Amino acid sequence: MTDLILHHYPSSPFSEKIRAVLGYKKLAWKSVTIPAIMPKPDVLALTGGYRKTPILQVGADIYCDSALICDVLEHVHAEPTLYPPHLKGVSRIFAQWADTSLFWAAMGYNLQPKGAAQVFAKAPPEAAKAFSEDRKAMSANMIRLRPGDATSSYRSYLRRIAHMAEEHDFLFGTDPCVADFAAYHALWYTRVQVPVMADILNATPAVGEWMDRIAAIGHGIHDKLNSADAVTVAKNAEPMPPGQNLLVDSAFQDDHGIPLGSAVTVTAETFGPEPTAGVLIAATRTHYTLQREDARTGVVHVHFPRVGYVLRKAEAA
């Protein structure tokens, strides 16, 4: 199989989620470090608009959103599984909650002035301003929690996670599943990226012990790849045909009255409003695939999960 190429940056929490999954599955991967804020010319050459982090590249196939990337890695290497049969439903539902409600409460707490000051302590003042403006643009359609409300929610969520971690080594049993990795990354940001804010974890020692077990998994075997070289990889590859790529379902499911072959856009429901335009070549029960072409990459297939994304005909965008 073509190399797994992860486009990420070190302090990205959703990237930490995927790095830990790669470690759990003991997969080798190529590490492409991308900017935390715009401009991201190499990323946009690959995705056509989507600019959230991380993305996973396999040749000329581009997989967007950490939830979809987890599905891809499960298909690449089924054992150890992220989705144990007896937890297949609850683990996904928990992960979706963790990637949304838990994440935004945690980040609303983490990036209060004291936390933000630590993040940008070694950066020039304009860096903090640029980051703030970038994230403001990405969250234009969102209602964000105020720091006090975020703190209250985060404390409650930590207690609930502690109740689970007190019962087992991992949240649902003796082995981790997708729920563990989804819950871990926002808490990792508190502990590792803004340790000045990490006192909130002290009231739930079982959470810290569980986090230690996740951290001990590591990130797998990886080496560095230049961003421009990753674009060249796409240029020199052919995207996998629908039904033969790293997403296991292939049957067309039409919930929009949009036939395959239509010009469409796919946009995140909330955070990250930038649309990706292309030709719809797959719409299955779990994902969309757009075919698009860029002068630098040639023809690529860009994949999105259905959940959390909006499909529209291009003329109605």
Rank of each mutant, 00 (worst) to 15 (best):
283 A>T: 11
94 F>C: 12
258 I>V: 15
137 A>F: 12
167 E>D: 13
147 P>Y: 01
92 R>D: 12
56 L>Y: 02
292 R>D: 02
266 V>Y: 01
222 H>K: 11
113 P>G: 01
80 P>Q: 08
110 N>W: 04
213 R>V: 10
316 A>P: 13
160 R>F: 13
26 K>H: 14
74 E>I: 06
301 H>I: 03
214 I>Q: 03
303 H>I: 06
61 D>I: 05
262 S>L: 13
200 I>V: 15
94 F>H: 13
134 D>E: 07
237 A>R: 07
278 G>Q: 03
225 L>Q: 13
57 Q>S: 09
60 A>F: 09
146 R>W: 06
81 T>H: 08
175 D>V: 05
57 Q>V: 10
10 P>V: 10
302 V>C: 00
138 M>C: 12
235 K>V: 06
278 G>N: 01
248 V>F: 11
30 K>I: 11
54 P>N: 01
284 T>F: 06
242 P>F: 04
168 H>R: 01
253 Q>P: 08
127 A>V: 15
43 V>H: 02
198 A>D: 15
61 D>W: 06
317 A>S: 14
258 I>F: 02
222 H>M: 11
223 D>W: 12
42 D>Q: 15
36 A>N: 09
111 L>M: 12
254 D>Q: 01
232 T>M: 12
212 D>K: 10
172 F>R: 03
61 D>G: 05
106 A>S: 12
76 V>G: 06
195 P>L: 10
53 T>W: 01
228 A>S: 14
88 K>P: 05
219 H>N: 14
271 F>P: 05
126 E>S: 11
271 F>V: 11
242 P>R: 00
140 A>D: 14
126 E>Y: 05
157 Y>W: 08
24 Y>V: 04
311 L>R: 00
149 D>M: 10
216 A>W: 04
217 I>K: 00
135 R>A: 05
105 A>K: 05
152 S>T: 15
257 G>W: 02
71 D>C: 12
198 A>H: 07
87 L>G: 04
24 Y>W: 06
13 P>A: 08
307 V>H: 12
117 A>Y: 09
197 M>A: 03
27 L>N: 02
29 W>Y: 11
11 S>N: 15
279 V>G: 01
316 A>D: 15
39 P>E: 03
291 Q>L: 10
155 R>V: 12
219 H>I: 09
58 V>T: 07
36 A>V: 07
115 G>N: 01
21 V>S: 10
106 A>W: 06
239 P>G: 02
209 E>K: 13
223 D>P: 05
168 H>A: 08
161 I>G: 02
2 T>W: 09
156 S>M: 09
218 G>Q: 04
115 G>H: 05
159 R>Y: 11
258 I>H: 01
185 H>K: 01
